[in-house]
């Protein structure tokens, strides 16, 4: 949890995660280079670097994009989500090497500024097959740069979780730009059903997982309820597991209703750190613990335990027999609300 910003502490899980990233990247580059040099030895070193790092970056981006929905569908994937930023920054490094070499190779040492050259060397903006695909790659690289350079908690804290999340949702714009960059560029000249097939498969996989997740989560937001004197019916108390929560949507805002120690408490579902779903968290040491990065909040007041300062909105609950009801009006973030005794 972030109060002061300091160098990231590497625990064993992070070390294993990062070792796997480095191993995967090295494995890719070495395999790509060996196969190219054995079967196509007339290559040039610049082309080898551009192609190896470009294709590595796009494969890494697909892996990054499936982690989110997989973690939404099965909480066992959450530890991968926890360090996804490391994977994102590593992917940016691969993309930057690809982009940097390409910019130098194709646009530097000429009669105009290399960045200006990207935009004006091919002016067929009105054609699909002749479209200046390098512009798309450059714009994607800019987005990835902004994301990679703001991936530290310092920016997360200063930009606010909402802004930071919006900024990092631009990965989907970058993905669209990169897919267009490859299909309107490399695949116009290097047409193999296998390489095109792997990207088509990747696109179908990424889109399907996102659609399945959206469909499953849609049920949370569209569940019908009954109103009784300003209180909304949530569920039977037996539907909430001990130390866990049920997520309930009121006026497009998700609320996490936790059951613990013979009590019920409700807080806003969105973690202040990175927007993680608190309702998929667990009560640990008396605190609601976010499943993404372990940020904690006290159930009764939605405040992070001192010295931390994050706080979320709280809600009032009541029990009528075994039925849980919620007052949809949110209290100010961090407002103490007496837990509803079971």
């Amino acid at each position: 949890m972030g109060l002061n910003y300091q160098l990231v502490l590497w625990n064993n899980h992070k070390k294993t995660y990062d070792k796997l990233i480095v191993l995967g990247m090295l494995l890719y580059i070495i395999l790509f280079a060996v196969v190219t040099l054995v079967f196509n030895s007339e290559t040039s070193i610049e082309t080898l670097v551009i192609r190896a790092f470009g294709s590595l970056a796009i494969i890494m981006l697909h892996i990054i994009l499936v982690i989110g929905p997989l973690a939404r569908l099965n909480s066992a994937f959450l530890p991968i989500l926890y360090n996804r930023r490391h994977l994102g920054v590593s992917m940016f490094i691969a993309a930057f090497i690809h982009g940097g070499f390409s910019m130098f190779q194709f646009h530097a040492l000429g009669d105009v500024n290399p960045i200006y050259s990207i935009f004006i060397s091919n002016m067929d903006y009105g054609s699909l097959t002749d479209f200046p695909f390098q512009v798309l790659g450059f714009l994607a690289l800019l987005i990835l740069f902004v994301m990679a350079s703001t991936s530290h908690d310092f920016f997360l804290g200063n930009l606010s979780a909402k802004t930071w999340k919006r900024l990092h949702m631009m990965v989907y714009a970058a993905y669209a730009l990169i897919i267009a960059h490859v299909f309107l560029g490399a695949f116009q000249q290097e047409t193999s059903p296998f390489t095109i097939g792997i990207l088509v498969f990747g696109f179908i996989l990424v889109s399907s997982l996102h659609l399945i997740t959206a469909f499953k989560e849609g049920h949370i937001d569209t569940a019908k309820t009954e109103e009784k004197e300003g209180w909304l019916k949530v569920c039977d108390i037996s539907e909430i597991e001990e130390d866990r929560a049920k997520i309930f949507t009121v006026e497009k805002e998700r609320i996490a209703i936790f059951k613990y120690d013979g009590k019920l408490s409700a807080i806003h579902n969105v973690c202040k750190h990175q927007g993680g779903p608190l309702g998929e968290g667990k009560i640990i040491d008396g605190c609601i613990t976010c499943p993404w990065h372990g940020y904690q909040y006290l159930p009764a007041n939605g405040q992070s335990p001192p010295p931390f300062t994050e706080k979320v909105a709280t809600y009032e609950l009541k029990l009528d027999g075994k039925t849980v009801y919620i007052n949809p009006k949110a209290f100010e973030e961090g407002t103490e609300v007496n837990p509803c005794k079971i």
Binding site: V35, R51, A52, S55, I59, F194, T195, I198
Partner: peptide, 12 residues
């Protein structure tokens, strides 16, 4: 990663 490296490098 391995399949991707093999496909992208071999089919140049």
């Amino acid at each position: 990663i391995v399949i991707g490296a093999l496909l992208f490098s071999f089919f140049q």
